[in-house]
Design a protein around this nucleic acid. Sequence first.
DNA 1: AACCAGGTCGTGA
DNA 2: TCACGACATGGT
Length: 304
Amino acid sequence: MNKNFVIDNIKDFHLPHVLECGQCFHYARVDMNINEGEYEYDIVAKGRTLHIKEEPDTEGVRLIFYNTEKWEYDSVWKDYFDLDRDYGVIKNEIIESDPRLEEIIYVNNGIRILNQDFFETLISFIISQNKQIPQIKQVVRNLSAELGTKFDVTMIDRLSSEFDAFFPTAEQLYNASEDDIRKSKCGFRAPYIKDAATKVYTGQITEQMLSEMNTQDARELLMTIHGVGEKVANCVLLFGLGRRDAFPVDVWMKRICEYLYYDEVDTPKSIIEADAAKRFGKYAGYAQQYLFMYGQKHKIGIKR
DNA sequence: AACCAGGTCGTGA
DNA sequence: TCACGACATGGT
């Protein structure tokens, strides 16, 4: 039964940076009986659950996927964690675009852009507007517990923690009333969630359509959803549709980029996004994530 | 007690 | 186009 899948010597990977850089919300850290250099998490994603641990290895880290078969790693988690990608190349390209990012990348090394489920990413980032990350996680958990398909923790013997349901499908959210959705404490975003679920469930917007469009057209189609603006659309493109050229600009990125590139002068998000596209090109999404972590860690530009 | 949060919408110049 | 308040909820 308890078969673990292990991979050794993974470079450019650090679980806390991967999960806690604000790109995903349906996870929890397991802090019990952990040794130095070890990090353990529970994750609910891709309609599955995962209990995973990182340990130091001779070169890079070792990942232990608890109670996981090889086929499941090959077909699900390898892609989810973006493990086929060579981040050495990506880091070099970014540093070439701006040498000042070398230190920032070094300090925040081990970030991976996850390949998450499209619909979950869409709803999660609709929720994210005007909320802090811990609260986003709470609403995602509430929404799942109330409307998502339950899984039996004792049967699965995998999760040690607080989750008991998958993220709701488009169908489940479409069939829920706005009041039911509001019970998740999503507040004024409830009609937004409903509209997104409706457009996806009725096939007005599909992952297939979006993946066949160029990034700009896909962004515009996403923005026809009520409650999806430029920033949320870019997050969905980057984290849920594999568009690594997308560069979401939120309050943090605005502060960080003004600090780095605009001499602290107030600059429109549209300018910041366009300049980043020019500067980082197809690596803009990766650059954004290193910058976001850096800004959060050092509270760049925050005045209090 | 105001003010802010991985924003977006509606309104009015 | 652009500025600005409103919007639920919770934390400081």
